[in-house]
Design a protein around this nucleic acid. Structure first.
Length: 671
RNA sequence: GCCACUGUGGCUUAGUUGGUAGAGCAUCUGAUUCGUAAUCAGAAGGUCGGGAGUUCGAAUCUCCCCAGUGGCUCCA
């Protein structure tokens, strides 16, 4: 007999060899809704047999662990279905992921249209309710089972020590190399939906085979699946690429170039407001504004180390006119040109891929003393990077962007405090915008690597500074070894977009490298020259990416202070034009952004039209308003308030803007 | 950069097996002056992402290029 402790603390006695399923059924009844079990905290199949005293807890299908198992099992089902439909395909790997699961196959490419067919097959297989069976095999028979699948053999080679066995999971005739656990039978996997097909490299290696990757969703119930699909639909409506067009915020033009954002008037307002907002805080924190050119000589980047090392991710250099002509006359090829530039035989200019070297030069333009430090130089600096064409996306991954950049030149003793200051700035901004859904990543050295510059004890101090700063935020943060830049540790702020992709926004990086390369110094209190440390920081990251994320965050419904047009005036009929003009003038006088519609459409039509642009308020003006010198407001959700005194309205609106209230609040919600 | 898919007037989109493009919104012109999600009528606007090819004939087939989408890889 063995003693089994249940989650509620009861201890039951069973004969040794009883399965988890039997224990859980005994404890919770037949309809226990569990997919697998935790035995002493470790996950096992329901069929796992218990042979010693232990604790057992069921894993429900709607728990986090349960969903994970469901997804992983659905991946197996997908592979089974694909194998039935495409006998030549070779399954490789198929894990559960955050939003579902995928499986990679070595096979002929398929199209989205084929997914329906595969999905149907999956449902059919689910319905046949195969038992999912765990089988332990020694290595020889494992190899035998997968002798026709070099991918599985490679996994066996990699993961298993010689002589070690492992397990396969069987459902019907089909089986896969896997550690489990899995659902007890395939009927649990009825509610699946294949979402997309794409490709991936075997083992994530660009130089290896490209595989067909199929993505899918699975949920424990029909309703849950429906809800998930609905949520995805809703999320897509907030996509900044769609809203950017609807709200006329930015434009990308094929003829201008890939990944190059043009901020249209309405979008430019948002950007300007954000820049003003942050500039205000920068001044308070002792930053000094600078401006630097968009290009710099190649030598500058040779010194900084960015050229030619990062040549592939930069726009090609600009070469002086005469030289270009001479080279052209001599029939110099691009490759030769590139080589000449690499060796320094000829010079040219580069579009700046970052602002640091220019700021470094400002630092170096004067003799600095410890009394000058920290020196904080800030600039909305536009940089250009040659991102791979396949990576470019909307506003979040572009080839030209403006960083809300700053570089702090500090003594080693000041690092900690200054990093903290940078972090605070990020937090002020995120708080004001109500962006709470972000994670913080502290990038540290890989202890085994030697690629890092700077003195190890200095690194430790800087890493501690980053850790402490991150901890002070009171949000989730994680340390990631090996994520540091080669020149110093960093703190990144990461948010997800509507389709679940992560984007790095704000960043704070400690840098020991550039001060070294540019031989920066300051005179210390001891009269000796010392090397300053640089801190790079950009709270938004880039204006483009940040705005893209912000559009999705607000679903296009910006707070009053940010929204491109704050009031849209709508007249009822022609006779209200004069009063409307008066109201418009009064608003504009106070710096409020107004758009007027005194055209001859019907009121309903005008409201419909203007709604699309999501102003904070629509100001409706008719007979009543004209007589009483009042306004009537319509909020974004359709709520209305009638006959507000004009002066009072303007006053209230202005304070709503000045205080950067999170959402328009002058129209009380209707009951 | 790699794989797959997509690309029709400003926007959304119809276009069966190849026979030189239909619509709605927006725009413009008239009429209408109307209280909160589309007033009526008319006009103008596309050669179908670009180029080459197959064909008597291509938006529809083939190839190359460009761009977008979903991934992969990358991201100082």
């Amino acid at each position: 007999m063995i003693q089994v402790t249940l989650p509620d603390g009861t201890v039951n006695e069973y004969a040794s060899g009883i399965t988890c399923a039997e224990v859980i059924t005994d404890a919770l009844g037949k309809k226990h809704g569990c997919l697998a079990a935790k035995v002493d905290g470790m996950e096992y199949d329901m069929s796992h047999e218990l042979d010693m005293n232990c604790s057992v807890e069921g894993i429900k299908s709607d728990s986090e662990d349960g969903i994970h198992i469901l997804r992983h099992s659905a991946a197996h089902l997908l592979a089974q279905a694909v194998m039935e439909l495409y006998p030549g395909a070779l399954p490789t790997i198929g894990p559960a992921i955050d939003r579902g699961f995928y499986y990679d196959f070595a096979m002929e490419p398929i199209t989205e249209g084929d997914l329906k067919k595969i999905e149907k097959k999956m449902q059919e297989l689910a319905r046949r309710n195969f038992t999912v069976e765990r089988v332990e095999l020694d290595q020889d028979s494992l190899r035998e089972h997968f002798e026709h699948n070099p991918y599985k053999l490679e996994i066996i080679d990699d993961k298993l020590e010689a002589g070690d066995g492992s397990t396969i999971y069987k459902q019907g005739e089909w089986y896969d190399l896997c550690l489990g656990p899995h659902v007890p039978n395939t009927s649990r996997l009825m509610f699946v939906k294949l979402t997309s097909v794409s490709s991936a490299y075997w083992r994530g290696d660009q130089d290896r085979e490209q595989l067909v990757r199929i993505y899918g969703l699975v949920e424990p119930s029909k309703d849950a699946l429906k809800q998930t699909l609905h949520r995805m639909e809703e999320a897509k409506k907030r996509d900044h690429r769609k809203l950017g067009k609807d709200l006329q915020l930015f434009h990308i033009d094929e003829e201008v170039g890939q990944g190059l954002i043009m901020w249209t008037p309405r979008g430019a307002i948002i950007r300007q407001e954000l820049q003003d907002f942050i500039s205000h805080h920068l001044r308070r924190q002792g930053y000094q504004q600078v401006f630097t050119p968009h290009i710099g000589k190649l030598d500058l980047y040779r010194t900084s180390g960015h050229f030619p090392y990062y040549q592939d991710s930069q726009y090609p250099p600009l070469v002086e006119r005469d030289l270009m002509k001479k080279l052209a006359d001599e029939g110099c090829t691009c490759g030769e040109l590139s080589n000449l530039m690499k060796t320094g035989d000829i010079d040219g200019y580069m579009l700046k891929p970052m602002n640091c070297p220019h700021h470094v030069k400002i630092y170096a333009s004067q003799a600095r003393s410890y009394r000058n430090l920290p020196l904080r130089l800030a600039e909305f600096g536009t940089v250009y990077r040659w991102e791979q064409s396949g990576e470019i996306s909307g506003m979040t991954r572009v080839r030209g962007f403006t960083q809300d950049d700053a570089h702090l030149f500090v003594t080693e003793d000041q690092i900690s405090q200054e990093v903290l200051g940078c972090i605070e700035l990020v937090q002020i901004i995120f708080d004001k915008l109500g962006m709470t859904d972000y994670r913080v990543r502290v990038g540290l050295r890989d202890p085994d690597s030697t690629k890092y510059v700077g003195d190890p004890s200095a690194w430790e101090k800087a890493e501690d500074a980053c850790r402490n700063a991150a901890a002070s935020l009171g949000v989730d943060w994680s340390e990631e070894e090996g994520e540091a830049a080669f020149y110093g540790p960093k703190i990144d702020f990461v948010v997800k977009d509507v389709i679940g992709r992560e984007w790095q926004l704000g960043t704070v990086q400690v840098d020991y490298n550039l001060p070294e390369r540019f031989d920066l110094t300051y005179k210390g209190s001891d009269g000796e020259l010392h090397r300053p440390v640089m801190i790079h920081r950009a709270p938004f990251g880039s204006m483009e990416r940040f705005c893209g994320v912000l559009i999705e965050h607000f679903a296009g419904r910006f707070p009053t202070w940010l929204t491109p047009t704050q009031c849209h005036i709508i007249t009822i009929s022609e006779k209200h034009k004069a009063y409307a003009a008066e109201v418009e003038e009064a608003l504009k006088e106070r710096g409020i952004r107004v758009e007027m519609d005194d055209g001859d459409d019907t009121v309903g039509k005008k409201i419909r039209t203007h709604r699309k642009l999501q102003p904070a308020y629509m100001v409706i003006l008719g007979d009543g308003e004209m007589e009483g010198r009042t306004v009537s407001l319509r909020a974004r959700n359709g709520d209305q308030v009638a006959d507000l005194g004009l002066e009072q309205f303007i006053e209230d609106l202005q304070s709503e803007i000045n205080e950067k209230v999170s959402q328009p609040s002058l129209v009380p919600p209707s009951s």
